[in-house]
Design a protein around this nucleic acid. Sequence first.
DNA 1: TAAAAAGTGGAAGCATTATTCCACTTCTGA
DNA 2: TCAGAAGTGGAATAATGCTTCCACTTTTTA
Lengths: 200, 200
Amino acid sequence: MAEEAAAGARRERRDVQRNMERVLQAAQELFAERGPDVKMEEVARRAGVGVGTIYRRFPSKDLLFAAVSEAACQDTRHCLFQAADHAHDPLEKLRAIILVQYRQSVRQAALIDLRPDPADAPADLDHPGLYASLHDLLAHVIASGQRQGSIRSGDPLMLAAICLALLSPHTVQNLSRLVDDDVDAAADHVIRFLSAGLAV
Amino acid sequence: MAEEAAAGARRERRDVQRNMERVLQAAQELFAERGPDVKMEEVARRAGVGVGTIYRRFPSKDLLFAAVSEAACQDTRHCLFQAADHAHDPLEKLRAIILVQYRQSVRQAALIDLRPDPADAPADLDHPGLYASLHDLLAHVIASGQRQGSIRSGDPLMLAAICLALLSPHTVQNLSRLVDDDVDAAADHVIRFLSAGLAV
DNA sequence: TAAAAAGTGGAAGCATTATTCCACTTCTGA
DNA sequence: TCAGAAGTGGAATAATGCTTCCACTTTTTA
């Protein structure tokens, strides 16, 4: 199964591994900041390699972006589920989710595409899709709050989608600006607002 | 002042006017649907003219887009203010604004950029910026509701920004999908949600 | 340390689109 | 109706940026 175990395979060259780390690091930084418009040559320069080296591992720019983007989503997903698990009360979970997503949205603004249908991603890799994950998570939390009586009634999917709209990188950026770029403060405002809108 | 009045000027040729109308119409339709990625040649084809004809009036694609986009914003602004004027109660105004913006966001999804800093527009023409107008309008309505006691306290600018997040074309699209693309139904959900979150 | 294998850089090739240019057409005024 | 002014279409050009390719370098193995 593993390539390394295949007959006669030699282990990966040291420099290859190092270069790929650099490439991913550079791509992550640049894409997170400026989205997919970054030029390949720029990624190569920041990584300290030639463009050819990037193409050795990533056959196209789209695939490089997809890889970096997918990693960012995995990371975000992981943080979100962890945060939700730590809290027990649904409203607490909600608060935790919002705070985490706000911080992620700042770090990786241009990488995290909180749209249901990326449309630009080549759809090669079967993205679970961060939107879907988050929407699901929120809907669950909301539904459980409803059962418990701390969240008002209404279609959980719709309520979750409304919450989601307040978590997009774009929204985060706008709100933060109003409070001197204090992301946590912005998150607080939203949390308070959602509490009022969702509470029974 | 007017060019037409200048000495020796002859009036604009009939076909010129007709062509420009066609160009603007075509550009409006295509840009509204697919954003600035539409190719000039495509605009020309739909308008039934050659690309050269477009360039006669609009020195660059960016300027064509800016013109069309600005027109869409003016139109939206107009509808918004009109809707707000018709209602008297602040909560009614809010409802009217949301409904209008939802409908506009569907018609001109890719033209209306509800971000404070377009960043892509050449910033040549002094856009008042639809974001700014709408943010202003909402903040006013909210503040007046607060004075009157029907809207809870809190920084009107922040509350307005939160409302705005629920009005972006992207959000509209997401929410509508959950109710069989019934835009008015989606708007209703948001209105109810905001009412709960904003009411005293 | 030397030969073979593997990887590298970055210039050249392509592809896609915006923009220019001008021979030709259409309109207007007389 | 005609001459001149004005406008037009669309092929040619320019610009941009992804991708390929291969002579050269680095690493590994023996």
